[in-house]
């Protein structure tokens, strides 16, 4: 089934995407199109393929696209390496951010930021200028600068890891941000902080996809569209009220909807 959101110049366009890992099909014809300034939410049962979709868009090497295409600002990105996608403005906030012992968070953030700046033909930042920038962005997610001197995500609490993801998004200023369950594991205050951070970072040119299981985040950031994913497909698309209905009736309700089709 086709989402109804296709317009002329989407920042991200996924067309009839089929993908598998080690011959196990996971995505079975996904369609979605995100225009600049739009916020989309994707909901769906555990295991339906939400994270897989997001990782495939970011270029994870474990998955193979068997059919369909992904377009970013009009260009097919299938042949691009993950780093090329990131540099050109695709951002994935991980459901499970990876811990990398021994690699300094600050150095990592600096190299990443400069890679993106280089692509944007902006001047690369030295250590001092970068520290100024990062301090400003830390304020957005109310993170302590002590996190910078630690190894990437190592020993961070669940909530701290998610804030570190949003910090990275703030530094990289992406054109499309896919935030995979950034709200999971956040306490009530942290959820508000993260949500307001996301709102501040996004602008008329950015597209955002929020993958979530909860209405709470969508109360803070009102999506333009809500998609329901089931077994590797988007089976229903609606406006923000769809999330409320889902909350009320559960996924069986959308299953029935699928049967009626």
């Amino acid at each position: 089934m086709q989402s109804k959101t296709k317009e002329l110049n989407p920042v991200l366009e996924v067309n009839n995407l089929f993908a598998s890992t080690e011959d196990l099909p996971i995505l079975k014809g996904v369609n979605i199109a995100v225009n600049p300034g739009e916020i989309h939410a994707i909901m769906g049962r555990n295991g339906c393929g939400k994270s897989t979709l997001s990782k495939i868009i970011a270029g994870h090497p474990s998955y193979k696209i068997t059919k369909g295409e992904i377009k970013f600002t009009g260009q097919d990105i299938q042949s691009l390496e993950p780093e090329q996608r990131a540099q050109s403005g695709i951002f994935l906030g991980f459901q499970y951010p990876i811990e990398i012992p021994g690699v300094s968070n600050l150095e990592f953030l600096r190299v990443a930021t400069n890679a993106r700046r280089k692509f944007l033909k902006k001047e690369e930042l030295d250590t001092f200028d970068f520290e100024d920038l990062v301090r400003e962005k830390l304020e957005l997610v109310k993170m302590d600068s002590a996190f910078l001197s630690r190894s990437i995500n190592q020993g961070f609490s669940g909530g701290e890891k998610k804030r570190n993801e949003i910090l990275q998004m703030a530094l990289l200023e992406p054109k499309i941000a896919i935030l995979d369950e950034t709200d999971s594991g956040l306490d009530i205050d942290a959820l508000r902080i993260v949500a307001s951070g996301i709102k501040k970072i996004s602008n008329k040119k950015t597209g955002i996809i929020l993958i979530t299981h909860y209405q709470r985040l969508l109360d803070e950031i009102k999506p333009n569209y809500v998609h329901v994913m089931s077994d590797g497909q988007i089976i229903k698309t609606g406006d923000s009220d769809l999330a409320l209905e889902l909350e009320k009736y559960g996924y069986e309700w959308t299953d029935n909807f699928l049967k009626k089709q």
Partner: peptide
């Protein structure tokens, strides 16, 4: 692999990401 992908998804080249991992291993 997952560590490398995480770093690459932030714009670090495979080479830069491997280097960061190796330096921590050597250090």
């Amino acid at each position: 692999e997952e560590e490398l992908f995480y770093m690459r998804s932030r714009g670090l080249t495979l080479e830069e990401a491997s280097k960061l991992q190796l330096s921590s291993y050597f250090q």
